[in-house]
C-alpha cells in the first residue's frame, strides 16, 4: 500500500530537528528506524504532513557506560543492543529483550528510543526499561530535560514529550553487583507482538536478599505497567521459590489485560504469573 504524500526533511543537528518540530508541531512526525511508523503510514493510519528524519544527525548512535549510566543514543538499533558484548555481559535483561524484539531484520533498523516514543503497550523495550528504571533525555527549545520512564509513558501511544521535543538518549542506571534479569515473552510466532511479556531485574545484597527489584509488564494493559506490589514483595527477601511465587501472583494482579485474538484477559493474566515465575527464577540463578 502507498502512504499519503508528505514533505521530508532531514536535519543535521538536534537543534535543527527541534526547530523543525517547533515549526510544524503536530503536523510533524519524527522518523528514526521507522519500523512502526512506516507500516502505519502505508495503511494511512498515520498521515504526517512533514516527516522529520533524525537518521542523519551525527553522534546519536552511541552505546556506552558513563557517569553511572548505560547511555543509549537515540539512533541505537535493536540489533546493536543484541550484538553488543557490553549488553551481553552486564545487562542480562536488556540482552534477553533485544533477542525477541520483532524479527532480526526489523531489529537492524528499529531503534530503542523510537520503540519507547511509540509507546505501544506491546512494545518490548518499554517493559524492559521500566524494570531497569531507565530515564529518558528529551531535547527541546529550552534545552534538555530528564524524564523517569514511569512519567514518560503516559497512555496508549502517548508520552510526556511535547510536540517540539525529541528524545536524544535513553539511560539506564548501571546496576550494582549481583544483578540478574530476564525478559520472558509469549508470542504466537517470531515477529508477533507479545501475548504477554514480563521484564524482571533484581539486585541481591551480599546475604542473597533482594535489594532492588524492577518488574515491567508488556501487552497486558493500556500502557506498560509496573508491578509495584510484586517489586515490594521481593525487596528484603531471599529469592526463594515461595517469595518468587508470591511476587508472581502479585504481578498477575497488577495486570490489566483485555481479551483479543492473542488470548483472553484471563489467560494473559495467568501468563503474567507464569512468566514472572520464570523470569525471577532465571534472574535469581
Amino acid at each position: 500500500m502507498i502512504p499519503a504524500a508528505f514533505e521530508y526533511v532531514a536535519p543535521r543537528s538536534v537543534a535543527e530537528a527541534v526547530a523543525l518540530l517547533r515549526q510544524h508541531s503536530y503536523d510533524a512526525k519524527v522518523i528514526a528506524g521507522g519500523q512502526s511508523l512506516i507500516p502505519m503510514m502505508r495503511f494511512r493510519m498515520a498521515q504526517p504532513r512533514v516527516l522529520v528524519d533524525i537518521g542523519r544527525i551525527p553522534g546519536l548512535d552511541y552505546l556506552r557506560e558513563e557517569d553511572g549510566f548505560l547511555r543509549i543514543g537515540a539512533l541505537v538499533r535493536h540489533a546493536t543492543m543484541e550484538h553488543s558484548p557490553l549488553i551481553q555481559e552486564r545487562y542480562p535483561l536488556l540482552a534477553a529483550t533485544a533477542r525477541v524484539v520483532a524479527d532480526p531484520l526489523v531489529r537492524n533498523l528499529g531503534t530503542v528510543a523510537g520503540s519507547l516514543v511509540h509507546a505501544d503497550p506491546a512494545g518490548d523495550w518499554a517493559a524492559a526499561l521500566m524494570a531497569a528504571r531507565a530515564q529518558v533525555v528529551a531535547a527541546g527549545p529550552d534545552g534538555e530535560r530528564v524524564i523517569g520512564i514511569d512519567d514518560f509513558l503516559v497512555d496508549t501511544f502517548t508520552t510526556a514529550l511535547e510536540p517540539d521535543e525529541l528524545v536524544v538518549e535513553v539511560r539506564v542506571p548501571i546496576p550494582g553487583p549481583r544483578t540478574g534479569g530476564d525478559y520472558q515473552k509469549i508470542e504466537r510466532k517470531v515477529g508477533d507482538f507479545a501475548t504477554a511479556a514480563v521484564a524482571v531485574q533484581v539486585t541481591l545484597d551480599e546475604a542473597g536478599r533482594c535489594q532492588q527489584a524492577g518488574i515491567g509488564l508488556c501487552a497486558v494493559g493500556p500502557i506498560t505497567l509496573r508491578a509495584t506490589a510484586a517489586e515490594e514483595a521481593l525487596v528484603g527477601q531471599p529469592l526463594d521459590e515461595a517469595t518468587i511465587r508470591k511476587a508472581a501472583a502479585l504481578a498477575a494482579e497488577a495486570a490489566q489485560p483485555t481479551s483479543d485474538l492473542r488470548g483472553s484477559a484471563e489467560y494473559k493474566r495467568d501468563m503474567v504469573r507464569v512468566l514472572t515465575l520464570r523470569a525471577l527464577r532465571n534472574a535469581a540463578a
Binding site: R188, K189, V190, G191, D192, F193, L261
Partner: peptide, 16 residues
C-alpha cells in the same frame, strides 16, 4: 474481518 494481515494471519517462521 479481524485477520487481514500477516500480523494476525499467522504464517509460521523457521523458528516455530
Amino acid at each position: 474481518n479481524l485477520v487481514t494481515n500477516f500480523t494476525e494471519y499467522m504464517l509460521p517462521t523457521a523458528v516455530e
